[in-house]
Every structure is written in C-alpha cells, then in structure tokens.
Amino acid sequence: MTDVALTKKDFTSDQEVRWCPGCGDYSILSTMQAFLPELGIPRENIVFISGIGCSSRFPYYLETFGMHSIHGRAPTIASGLAISRPDLSVFVITGDGDALSIGGNHLIHSLRRNVELKILLFNNRIYGLTKGQYSPTSEQGKITKSTPAGSLDTPFNPISLAIGAEATFVARSVDSDRKHLTEVLRAAAAHKGSAFIEIFQNCPIFNDGAFDSVKDSETKGAALLQMVHGQPIKSETHGLVHEGASLKLVELSSVSESDLVVHDAHNPDPSYAFALSRLSSSELSHVPVGIFRDVARPSYGSLVNNQIDEIIAKQGAGDLSTLLSSGDTWVVE
C-alpha cells in the first residue's frame, strides 16, 4: 500500500495525448487513470505493455512503468515479465489487429496458460494506425482502402475466441460507458490469472459509428444485454431464456421475469459462456456486455514458481560446484 492515497492525476504522465479528436481511446484512458488509484497498488508495481496500433500508444500516457513493444507480441513480453516478477501487476493493451491478426497465436496461448495478465483489447473493427484497412473483426463486406469491393473474410468473435482458448475471465465493455468499464476492470483486477476484456472502441476517422447501436440513447437500451452475476440477463426490451441446451433471445413482453436465464459467471462449463458470446450478431443489434466468464484456475506464474519452490524444498537450493562436478569425473594428478 502507498503511504498517501494516489489520485487520477498521479497516474497521468506528462506526455501529450496524440489520438484523433473524438477517439474512443480517450475515454478508456481517462477511465483507467481514474480507476488505478482504487487498486491501492504503488505506481512502480504497475506495468502496461502494448503492441503496435493507435491503441498501443496507451502506456505513454500513464505514470507507471510501460513498454510500447512490437506488433502483436505484447503478450509474450508481458508473460516473461509476469512469470518472473509475480510482485507486479501487468496489463496488456492491444488492438483488434494487434491481438487477433499478427498476435493471435500469443493471445490464445497466454489465455490457455492463464498467465497473470489483464488484457484489454480495444476493438474498433478497423486498422487505425495504418489508416483504415479492414481487420479480423470487421464485418464481411466491409469497404476499406484494401477492400474497395468489400472484404470477404468471416470475422472473429473475440469473446468466443477467448473462451475457446480456455480463458478464465472474459468480459466486454464499451469505451464511453465509464461506470460499466470501471466495474469490469475492478473484477478483472480481482481475478487471479488472465483476464480478457474486449472494449468496443469507436474510431471516428476510419470506422465511425461502428458501435452506434450500443451507444445511441435511442437504441442502446434495447441492444445491450446486461450480464450481472446472479441477475436475469436482459436488455430493456429483450431477455434470455433456455431453449434445450442453448440460449434464446426473446421479447420481454412474451415471457415472465422468472423464465429468464439468471447469469452465472462462475459456471465451470465453458459452453454456457460460449453460448452467450454467440448472441452478438455482426450488426450488433443485441450485444451481451459484462462478464461472460469468471472461473478459478491457478495462474501460470504461481504454478511455475510453486514448482521451483517445491523442488528446492525437497532437494535444497542448487550448488554450482556440485552441479559442475556431477556425473562421471576423474582426477588428473
């Protein structure tokens, strides 16, 4: 714990923030700066590691340790750091291209290992920094500079991907919803192991309005399916009911409150969270937000370090002289 309570200002670096006016990254940054003091962790024990992309400029603006690394590889560097320094709180900042295209391999492996990392994926469904090519989350048919006739690829659903990769904590929030994002960050920070958070982030320059349906005051009430552990999953107009082994979206008016699925974020069966993740269609008319899955599994760093501790407890700490003279030796007089 720090001697004096830190404030948002203490986490704000002296660097001039250089995102485009109106970029969703600003509100995520501001929410993070306001949230960090609440953790009660000294600034020097917090590290932000990012890849490359607009979003990956994030660490420069935080008065903590930070590294702006190379495209897609932040989880690798962060893994080495988190495993060897369990005393640190390590955040990974990444974009949809950074995490899901060039860095897809590292993302899934960090999640399956459950490395003690808080991974924030800023999903603007576009390549921002390279000026507007389609990304692995862009909807099929997307017209961009590199796809003037429309993109052909089927997009990833980042939440489904993370669950498929054995993630123990998976959540989604929206850049402009400070309160919701803060709650998700709080839960992620409390989670042991990897926490994966997809944040819908508007890029007003290359993909403006991509998330309008979940932001406009007229549509968002209906579109946002709020997932709160122990509460029925519903938006203002729709709710979820069980249908066989699957989940089904229905109008609230057609069912009674007691028929609605009560959210269980701790459900050990990943197919439940996976079913939830499939509810968000590409056009985002209905989108679950909140925590899909939050289950306990030992973090990778704790497994690595416990294994070493156990070996030392059993065999004693290594002695270099003994090691060098192990095996068949002989003496020349």
Binding site: S69, I77, S79, L81, I83, H106, I308, I311, A317
Partner: peptide
C-alpha cells in the same frame, strides 16, 4: 529448477524471445 531456473517452452520462437526480453 533448484537453481531457481525458469524454463518457458513458448508457443513459437517469437514468444520465446519475447518472454526472455520481458523477463
């Protein structure tokens, strides 16, 4: 391991060196 050695078999060569650099 009794020397406190951490060996991390990474998912590929890039992750291998990335983790070493992070450490």
């Amino acid at each position: 391991k009794k020397f406190g050695v951490v060996t991390f078999q990474a998912e590929d060569e890039i992750a291998a060196i990335g983790s070493a650099l992070g450490a």
